[in-house]
Computed example of a mutant assay.
Amino acid sequence: MSKTINLNNKTVVISRTDSIGDVVLTLPMCAWLKQQFPECKIVFLGQSYTRPVLESAPFIDEILEWNKIEALPVQSRVEELKKLEANVFIHVFPNKEIAKLAKKAKIPFRIGTSHRSYHFLSCNIKPNFTRRKSEFHEAQLNFELLRSYGIKELPSLKELSALMADFHPKGTLPQDIQRSIEGLNLEQGKKKVILHARSQGSAVEWDIEKFSRLAKLLADNGHAVFYTGTNEEGVNIRGSIPTAQNVFDVTGKLTLAELQSFILQMDTLVACSTGPLHLAGILGIEAIGLFSPRRPIHPGRWMPLGEATKVIVHDEDCELCAKGEDCDCITKITAEKVYDTITSNIEELA
């Protein structure tokens, strides 16, 4: 379709029903649509647990929870989509069942990549692009789905980051955790650092012992360290958390809404490729990502957005990663290298 379609006064459904990080990297396209078509209505179809992230995005007008719709009988699912009176349905994360429902709901424009065979039966706009072998970032690739609506060139990472300027969490922190932050007596230039040591299997992970080494380096040099994660992750890592002054374990103590507000009060977050890393990036704090250079999980595809983002790999030219083979080179990143990355800008300002 060569002619740009005007979406003002139209309802657009963005479907991304996977994890937090993926949702975060989909938000810039929502912001762009609202920027280009201020009178359009943006409906986001996601999972219930990502709702706090979506509620922090003022350019999203309505949130649908797929897990709740999925629990309904098939015809009731169709009726839920019909109620939206949507004009456009964009399958950012392909899902065969959702694609069939959007067609049954007779949504006029249904957009999905041509690289999913079932989209040939369910979608009537099928952009031809591939994610796995692309040189572009995941958030940039999402814009391939908007070619019919005015996108001529994919936006830069800087432009994508700028689109997230209005993202702001609404949660407040539990009083005991807020008191812990306010009670810190750090010297000037010292940082409050989050270590999000696990990723619920979404990424190749760094050794927990190296997170411990990093925590001790930070604490011994006057910085404050906060471990975050789910309660289950906390059970698995608490034995390795150093018992040192200004090292705090808040695993299992924060909801997702609270975690976002917590991140806003910190200076740095260190993690592998996982949701909180992406949240830190768009919230504007220093987000340091530990990555493997292997495609398709390399930082060029999955680094967090944000002006203060930094990524670390052990060896950009790793032979095993270049061949696409399983590799543990991420575990060779030293705690000292990460510490130097965290403190380098402090030294530059001194």
Rank of each mutant, 00 (worst) to 15 (best):
F93P: 04
I125L: 10
Q47H: 09
R77Y: 02
E80Y: 07
Q75H: 08
I60F: 06
K96M: 10
H115V: 14
K103S: 06
C40Q: 04
L101V: 07
E85Q: 15
P58H: 10
E65R: 05
F120M: 09
T113V: 12
T50S: 08
P94M: 03
A102F: 03
K104L: 14
H91W: 05
R51Q: 11
F59Q: 02
I63D: 08
R131N: 08
R51M: 12
F89K: 00
K106R: 15
P108H: 06
V78A: 05
L121M: 13
A102C: 11
V88R: 01
Q47N: 14
C40W: 01
R77I: 00
N128L: 07
E97R: 11
D61L: 01
H115E: 15
T50V: 14
N124G: 05
K68M: 07
P58L: 10
V78H: 03
A99I: 04
F59H: 05
C40L: 13
N128H: 09
E138D: 15
I111E: 06
E80K: 13
E39P: 04
N124F: 02
P52F: 09
R51W: 06
K41E: 11
R131W: 13
P94W: 00
E62H: 15
S117Y: 10
V88F: 05
T130H: 13
F93M: 09
